[in-house]
Design a protein around this nucleic acid. Structure first.
Lengths: 334, 334
DNA sequence: TTGTAAGCGTTATCAT
DNA sequence: ATGATAACGCTTACAA
């Protein structure tokens, strides 16, 4: 592959001049530029970013850490980030972690060896996280997405998970529901799931309703009717379910319907995330919408700001309750 | 950031020796290695891939071109590729094109400037594609995914789209359906959508059924009931619909149900892709499953093979019809 | 406006 | 087994 030196020779100028023709065209006489470009075209010259990056100590590459692309939330947000990044001249080097802290660490190390300019990550648990401390210590720009750290002034972009689930619960209560449960994946795996549970509990307590323990599914995005059944069979059956994400909600609705229960006539269901697909379903999925586009964009802009030396701050974006046919009023008042 | 020279000095050896301690440990005395590693740890040394890549002329990075991450098919397949690539020591630099040929070209150029070792792409139309010709001419290893070029020996990984849709149509016919339509996005946008339509037509002709024109939706993944209604209202209403992708199928089912039609009692629906979510729905989605895991893996392995000098070939992976509750027998024989 | 030369962090070749 | 040195392709003072 031809390099700048060859182009320069062909154009009858020095390497420096040839380089300038590309990076600082205003410093070079137009005719000279033309000669350089002509030579470049003729030789099929393609600038080598590696050389430039090595020299300038900046790659214009952002490392992205995502739990999984199988969940549309992350995929859709990645899509938004990719567009935002490209607009600003940055490329994305991505990796999936499956919420495994060990993988997280390995991959970050790998990304840093590639000399990414900064990191955008969604980690399993942001509290007491050794990896984040290390990044802090090394002064490496990073920004968390979805993770919510209210305690410290951590650089993150997210919605107010507690408030969001509070609002969703409130909505059900206003429709007359009292026996409301919250369904989630294993062990409230993520820090934000915990906050959502808090929001649920607060709303329940505020109305002197009973805040129940989490209905814990074996998988993050898949319902198990066996786990669900006991809550619907007893003498005070649940009339509404809050789910920690949309895929889980959709799965729950499917299970309910297969068991002969009508949604929302007998059980109302609310999801979390507001994935696009939810609106297409019948019944359409009522869900707490996280503004994924805005989150993706804010993440990129925020990281660039950090790299530019700005102070880290927690950016809370507004959530919104998207109404849907999966929720209805309490059929029989009690 | 500390570099190899510093580490070498600290360890009391030459740069070359320090380098070898990392890349060819067997060429260096164990004690010496230890000294180097100790120094590296002490100094917080992190190998700089840019230096290595510039020198070795290989990045171990694969450029990935995807139409959109908003469609779970691509997201799930990207997930599979990421895992497969990492296993083989490769990272993924990704970009989305929104099926825009201009973006496709720009992005490929950008990726090549970054000196990716090869490209994995899903392009809008692989026939008569100038970009692909250019890559051929420059001898740059690339591999297409989902795109199906039967004519030439193009490097691609896909299912047999024609046969797959043929099978799906056949399945409906065997259940007694005769009035079967195919629903797709605008203008059979992609080359594979055309092949799928061919499969539908062939199956219809084979049974002396009438192959209808495409029922064309304004969007790739969203149904419009206005477009659908005329086909269900007339004196020979359709009793089954084939959809060009799962998101569209789900949207179609939602529209039908909202219009008071029962699925599958009145209308059967089959999707294409077999996204994970489809199994959760009620009715569960009958769909032609593309083996996304296998496709992702085959794409990575295939590209590495190409880079290793092997001959390009079209790799067809087996599709499978996943049965589901969205399809039923013809209720009233005619 | 253009040229010279040094350096970014590796690895590979050739000696020792 | 180890060391010296020259690339890899680019940018950027500094000089002219």
């Amino acid at each position: 592959m031809t390099d700048l030196a060859t182009v320069a020779k062909q154009a009858g100028v020095s390497r420096a001049t040839a380089a300038r023709a590309f990076s600082q065209p205003d410093l070079v006489r137009p005719e000279t530029s033309q000669k350089v470009f002509a030579a470049a075209r003729k030789l099929g010259f393609r600038p080598n970013h590696l050389g430039r990056q090595l020299r300038t100590q900046a790659t214009h590459i952002i490392g992205v850490l995502i739990p999984s692309l199988d969940n549309p939330v992350f995929a859709e947000q990645l899509q938004a980030m990719e567009v935002a990044a490209r607009e600003r001249g940055y490329a994305l080097l991505i990796a999936t972690t499956d919420y495994d802290p060990e993988r997280e660490a390995d991959i970050v190390e790998e990304l840093l060896r590639q000399r990414v300019d900064g990191l955008i990550m969604t980690v399993a648990d942001a509290h007491e996280n050794a990896l984040l401390r290390q990044l802090d210590a090394e002064n490496i720009p990073y920004l968390l997405v979805y993770n919510q750290l209210d305690t410290l002034d951590a650089p993150c972009v997210c919605v107010d998970n507690r408030q969001a689930m509070f609002d969703a619960t409130r909505h059900l209560q206003q429709l007359g529901h009292r026996h409301i449960g919250m369904v989630a994946g294993p062990m409230l795996q993520s820090d934000r799931a915990k906050l959502r549970y808090q929001g649920y509990c607060q709303a329940m307590l505020a109305q002197r309703h009973v805040a129940l323990p989490i209905i814990e599914m074996p998988q993050h995005t898949r319902s198990s009717f066996e786990v669900l059944a006991p809550w619907l069979d007893n003498d005070t059956p649940l009339t509404a379910l809050l789910c920690s994400n949309d895929l889980l909600a959709i799965s729950v609705i499917g299970d309910l319907q297969r068991a002969g229960l009508r949604v929302p006539d007998q059980v109302s269901v609310i999801g979390f995330d507001g994935i696009a697909l939810g609106e297409q379903l019948c019944p359409s999925l009522c869900s707490v919408v996280q503004p994924r586009q805005a989150i993706g964009r804010a993440a990129v802009e925020g990281l660039l700001a950090l790299m530019g030396g700005e102070q880290a701050r927690l950016e809370k974006l507004p959530h919104q309750l998207r109404l849907g046919e999966s929720v209805g009023p309490l059929p029989w008042p009690n």
